[in-house]
């Protein structure tokens, strides 16, 4: 095991030059992080684009809920990495496959939370909207969305946490440049001090992402 002094040395070396580029398979931790964050951002963004409208629909319509719920329940517990071989085979591109894996893992918490948030908007508020003769669209955007926003953001926060967990594993599996690749590459070399350094970086970045969503969540929270 590396000593704390060795660890500090490794961390200093990596952090003092985070953007070095020594060839296609050897890049600084900053560049690797950018690759990972880019993939997470894309996969997560696409998932949000699908999950939030779909969740809205499911929350509004008991029929849609009844129709889709069994599928969601079956698909939700599947480890996202199990999709990887299938994704590679059908998509035929490893980068898009890892984005797909992020997409598929972050869609469920957002979908379920959105549906739940929309479904549990207080009846009184909907009735008030009705008496004021607000249209469907207006009700959706001005009553339901703000009312459900804290729950939706909780879903997004959970999803982001999972996406960040999964990207490291996906990159280790597929070997695309990124933090997961960095860990794998240093594992090849049995360089534990670099692996421990990477673990620290992954933890800190994960925490920052969570804090960002926490702040967003507070911004939309309301007092009844």
């Amino acid at each position: 095991m590396p000593t704390p002094a060795q660890l500090a040395g490794t961390a200093w070396k990596q952090l003092s030059d985070p953007f070095y580029d020594a060839g296609s398979n050897d890049k600084g931790i900053g560049i690797q992080l950018a690759y990972s964050l880019g993939r997470v951002g894309l996969g997560f963004g696409l998932a949000a684009l699908v999950a939030i409208p779909l969740g809205f629909l499911i929350g509004l319509s008991p029929l849609a809920y009844g129709a889709l719920n069994p599928f969601i329940q079956v698909l939700k517990p599947i480890s996202p990495l199990a999709w990887m071989p299938l994704a590679l085979y059908t998509i035929k591109d490893s980068t898009i496959s890892s984005i797909f894996v992020i997409f598929i893992c972050s869609i469920w918490p957002m979908l379920i939370n959105t549906a739940h948030g929309v479904a549990s908007v207080r009846r009184d508020w909907l009735n008030v909207a009705k008496t004021l003769e607000a249209g469907t669209v207006r009700t959706a955007f001005q009553v339901i969305l703000p009312a459900a926003a804290p729950t939706i953001l909780t879903g997004m926060r959970i999803s982001m946490g999972i996406a960040w967990l999964v990207i490291v594993a996906a990159e280790m599996l597929v070997g695309n440049l990124g933090v997961g690749y960095f860990v794998w590459n240093e594992w090849n070399n049995l360089s534990l001090s670099n692996v421990i350094f990477a673990i620290g970086v992954i933890g800190v970045v994960g925490m920052l992402l969570d804090l960002a969503f926490g702040a967003l969540q507070r911004a939309v929270t309301y007092v009844e």
Binding site: G23, S24, N25, P85, L88, Y89, K92, D93, S94, M172, L173, V174, G175, W184, N185
Partner: peptide, 20 residues
Amino acid sequence: VTLVKTAGWALIRDKTMNKE
């Protein structure tokens, strides 16, 4: 030539067959 380090043989097979 760009050399791409790959994580395992199944993956290198898929990436070769996928024309990556």
